[in-house]
C-alpha cells in the first residue's frame, strides 16, 4: 500500500443528507486489494470526541491534536459522524457530519478541523504517494486553521503563498531539516513558529496548520507518509581510466608513450583536480 504509485483521487461528497448508509462496511468492499489507507487527524481545539463511521465507533475519546495511526479500511462510502465524547450517537446531534468516498488504493487523511471562520468541519485529503526523487522530500502544507490566508516559509523563504483554509499545496524540496514558520499572507507577521521540521527523504511530509487565531492556539502538526523513495540516477565512481587498461586503447597508447607520462602526470593532476567529478 505504501508503495503504491497509483495516482488516486478522493471525492469528498458534501454531507448534508447525501447518503445515509446503515451498515459499517460498504457493499462489495471485502477484497483486500479494495482497501484504502485512512488516517484521521483531530484538529478542532477544545473538543474531545467520538468518531463514528457508518454507525460504528471508529475512534473513541479522540483528543485534539491527535493523529490516529493509518488504518486499512475497505474502499467505499463512509458516513462519518463526530460526537462530543460520551454522547449517545442514537440521540445526540453530531458536532460534525460528512460522507466521504474512499477509493481503492487511496492513502487519505480525514481531518476534523475548523473552517476559516471557526466552524467545525470534516475534510478528506489525498496523500500523494507517488515516487519522490532521490535526495528529495515532498512537502505538503494543509491550512486547516481558523485563520486567514497564510504564507509558509522555510529558512525564511516563502515556499507556499496565499494558502487558504481548507486548501493544501505541495512541492518537492531537498531533504533535511528546515526552520519553518507560517506568516499572514503577504506580511512578515508570524502566526506559527518558527519550528524545525525534519523533512524526510523519499517521504511525503504533510504539515497541518491548525487551531484558531482568535483562541491563540495555532500550531503545526506533521504527518509523514514514507516509502516513496527512489534510487539515485546512477553512480559515477571513476576518473582517469587507470583501472581500465585491459579494454582501453587509450591507456595502452599512454603506456606506449613511455616515460614522459609520469613527469607530466603531476602537472595534469593539478590542472584537472578541480573538474574531477566521478
Amino acid at each position: 500500500m505504501r508503495k503504491s504509485r497509483t495516482s488516486v483521487m478522493i471525492a469528498a461528497c458534501l454531507g448534508a443528507g447525501a447518503l445515509s448508509l446503515g451498515s459499517a462496511v460498504p457493499a462489495g468492499a471485502a477484497q483486500a486489494e479494495d482497501t484504502a489507507t485512512v488516517s484521521v487527524f483531530h484538529a478542532v481545539p477544545g473538543l474531545t470526541v467520538d468518531v463514528y463511521a457508518n454507525g460504528d465507533e471508529l475512534l473513541p475519546d479522540f483528543k485534539p491534536g491527535t493523529l490516529a495511526d493509518p488504518q486499512e479500511l475497505p474502499a467505499g462510502s463512509y458516513d462519518l459522524k463526530v460526537f462530543e465524547a460520551g454522547a449517545d450517537p442514537k440521540t445526540a446531534d453530531p458536532a460534525i457530519q460528512k460522507t466521504v468516498e474512499v477509493p481503492a488504493g487511496a492513502n487519505a487523511t480525514v481531518v476534523a478541523h475548523l473552517s476559516a471562520d471557526g466552524k467545525p468541519q470534516l475534510n478528506a485529503f489525498v496523500n500523494d504517494t507517488s515516487a519522490v526523487a532521490a535526495g528529495k522530500s515532498r512537502l505538503t502544507v494543509r491550512h486547516v486553521a481558523a485563520a486567514p490566508a497564510v504564507d509558509v516559509r522555510a529558512n525564511g523563504t516563502a515556499v507556499f503563498e496565499g494558502l487558504v483554509n481548507p486548501k493544501e499545496d505541495t512541492t518537492e524540496v531537498d531533504a533535511g531539516t528546515v526552520s519553518a514558520d507560517v506568516v499572514l499572507a503577504g506580511t512578515d507577521t508570524v502566526a506559527i513558529g518558527p519550528a524545525d521540521l525534519n523533512l524526510k527523504e523519499g517521504a511525503n511530509n504533510v504539515v497541518y496548520a491548525w487551531g484558531s487565531a482568535d483562541e491563540k492556539n495555532l500550531a503545526l502538526k506533521v504527518q509523514t507518509v514514507s516509502g516513496m523513495h527512489s534510487q539515485p540516477g546512477g553512480v559515477d565512481a571513476g576518473g582517469s581510466g587507470a583501472m581500465a587498461s585491459g579494454n582501453s586503447s587509450n591507456a595502452w597508447m599512454a603506456w606506449a608513450a613511455g616515460a614522459g607520462v609520469l613527469t607530466l602526470a603531476g602537472a595534469l593532476s593539478i590542472r584537472s583536480r578541480t573538474r574531477q567529478d566521478a
Binding site: A242, N250, A254, A257, V261
Partner: peptide
C-alpha cells in the same frame, strides 16, 4: 599511472 588524454601522453612521449 597513465593519466589524462592520449594526446597529453603522446605529447609527453
Amino acid at each position: 599511472v597513465a593519466a589524462g588524454s592520449v594526446w597529453s601522453a603522446v605529447a609527453a612521449g
